[in-house]
Design a binder for these strands. Structure first.
Length: 255
DNA sequence: ATGTCGCCTCATAGGCGA
């Protein structure tokens, strides 16, 4: 089973990019983040053989799961805050696999209300992942985590020192997720490999110089991690005209 | 501080979020 994740930075602006990528790669499942609008073009994806479930809001955020087989929605909200109305979480069962798509808050600037919301969101995610670990629920969590896990995951730590994605607090929380027994699929298969990024700023020709960060991740529960075959970043979509600032990451599991 | 996108509106320019 191949599962991909892609922050598209507006599905309206990126519909043709996503469709052509799906037709070329035919993943079983695609997780999308940052849809940026209430309209989701489910009919356009159905035409090319993908069913979909989307959680949307006006202007901001938004996540969707696309699949060639039926999707059973389990939850559209992350537990722990009834007042949180952001469209950032979608939990589903697809082909017998428990899949969670997240768009973790950006949190900039550090020290702001946004930053506090990010940390609280990560605490809620940790509690949920802890419950799954305790109950032995095998689950894959994928998406835009908005966390640069280690120094090796950015081109130059100095450039990200003042950014929320690189602060000690979110990084400590990301490590805490791993300590619960989850595996960072990409890093486990590519230990010590530098220069592997999923996001590059639009400005200053960041992509051309490979000045990026690795913030789109797949975390696997123990038994799924045993089934991990490959995890690759496809840089090709980032080279296209009018690209998203993120590019897809694809994980393969032998089920 | 800046760079560049995409969205929205007290809309055709500017603010916000990323």
């Amino acid at each position: 089973m191949r599962i991909a994740s892609w922050n598209v930075n507006s599905i309206k602006s990126r519909l043709e990019h996503v469709k052509s990528w799906l037709e070329a790669h035919e993943p079983d499942v695609l997780l999308l983040q940052e849809l940026k609008g209430t309209e989701f073009p489910s009919a356009a994806f159905l035409e090319i053989g993908y069913q979909s479930v989307a959680v949307t809001q006006k202007t901001y955020n938004g996540v969707a799961i696309l699949s060639r087989t039926p999707i059973v929605t389990l939850s559209t909200t992350l537990a722990g805050d009834e007042a949180d109305s952001h469209a950032r979480y979608l939990e589903a069962s697809v082909g017998g696999i428990h899949i969670v798509n997240i768009y973790l808050p950006n949190g900039n600037p550090p020290g702001s209300e946004n930053f506090a919301y990010k940390l609280a969101w990560m605490d809620r995610l940790q509690r949920q992942m802890s419950r799954w670990a305790e109950s032995g629920t095998e689950v894959l969590i994928g998406g835009d985590f908005n966390v640069i896990p280690e120094d090796i995951d950015c081109h130059k730590p100095e450039s990200w020192m003042r950014d929320a994605l690189f602060q000690p607090e979110p990084r400590a929380r990301y490590r805490a997720l791993l300590q619960l027994g989850y595996t960072d699929a990409f890093r486990s298969l590519h230990p010590g490999e530098a220069g592997q990024f999923t996001f590059w700023d639009y400005f200053r020709q960041a992509f051309e110089h490979n000045r990026g960060i690795r913030i789109d991740h797949f975390l696997l529960s123990p038994k799924l991690a045993e089934r991990l075959v490959s995890c690759v970043i496809d840089k090709e979509p980032r080279k296209q005209v009018k690209p998203s600032d993120h590019t897809p990451i694809i994980v393969e599991l032998n089920l």
